[in-house]
Design a binder for these strands. Sequence first.
DNA 1: CATATACCTGAGAC
DNA 2: AGTCTCAGGTATA
Length: 360
Amino acid sequence: MKRARTTTISPKSPPHPPPPPTPPQKLHSRRVPLQWAPLNLPQSELYLPLTLPTGQTFRWKQTGPLQYTGAVGPHLISLKHHHDHDGAVYYHIHRTPSDESAAMCALLDFLNSHVSLADLWSDFSASDPRFAEVARHLTGARVLRQHPLECLVQFLCSSNNNIARITKMVDHVSRLGHPLGSVEGFDFHQFPSLERLALVTEQQLREAGFGYRAKYITGTVDALRAKPGGGEEWLASLRKLDLEVVIDSLCTLPGVGPKVAACVALFSLDQHHAIPVDTHVWQIATRDLLPDLAGARLTPKLCSRVADAFVSKYGQYAGWAQTLLFIADLPSQKSLLPSRDGNIKKNKPGKKKTTQIASW
DNA sequence: CATATACCTGAGAC
DNA sequence: AGTCTCAGGTATA
């Protein structure tokens, strides 16, 4: 039978607790089917499995079929596709300190909802047949607009690391923030402020398994706190600056190199033409964009050449194009796509991915 | 500038 | 079981 899913707000409530005489949280009643409201975004403009679990954020959890839950600032929100209505996106606000419309507003901002994916992809497809082919199979992959500090810390954790451990580390840091409740067994927290982050020591992070990234986090937190006016404001101020300045500024922080800087710029600082060039994108680029460089090693200089090539080809929103091409190259997606030579993709024995990046 | 190497950890592949 | 390699990099020499 199909039942609407239920949620509990208090952390760690036993399976069937007798209802307390006076519930601590009266915001939501317990064990009531969630109320879902339409988000006014068709599946073609937002397809959750291609947007939330594909490496932009590690803080959203799958809490049901085509359903994901995460924090947007202080708001705890679930999103899901409706089986009917062409798979349109619906939302449920589990908890918000203000009101529904404020949460909704924050959510639309988080989703960059003012950007029309249809327009973008039509442009990309016009300038690149391969993009057109890929896009036909993978519609609705958006670039998010995350909170800068939250985005930065997540990608500090990502260096030379795998998805499973990154997620674990991000979960650990997140627990420093204000708890927002639990959904389907996952505990959610507001991302900790700079002040909260400053309470944890490098040694504590190392003991928690962060390895050498422990000092990246404490070092960056310290550097941000030293900024006049506060680090969060400093980060936010980067949104109005040019990409080169943004990248250079971010790279002054310990643990932030070109790749992490580009991720933060693209996924949180409105730098829609930032191109995070990692080993993966390097493969894509030398295959499709700069075949001459195939076989070369990725140096900082070549890194910016790749970025330039993407921008030349796709323009002001090149980062959005790059994001889709990146997703298309994920092992979890390749099986859904026709391969270049037209054959059905079978896993190559040579290079195995041990980490499943996303599965659905 | 380009190249090489260390850096933490833990999950797979031999 | 004990190695080895690799994972969406960065900081140094």
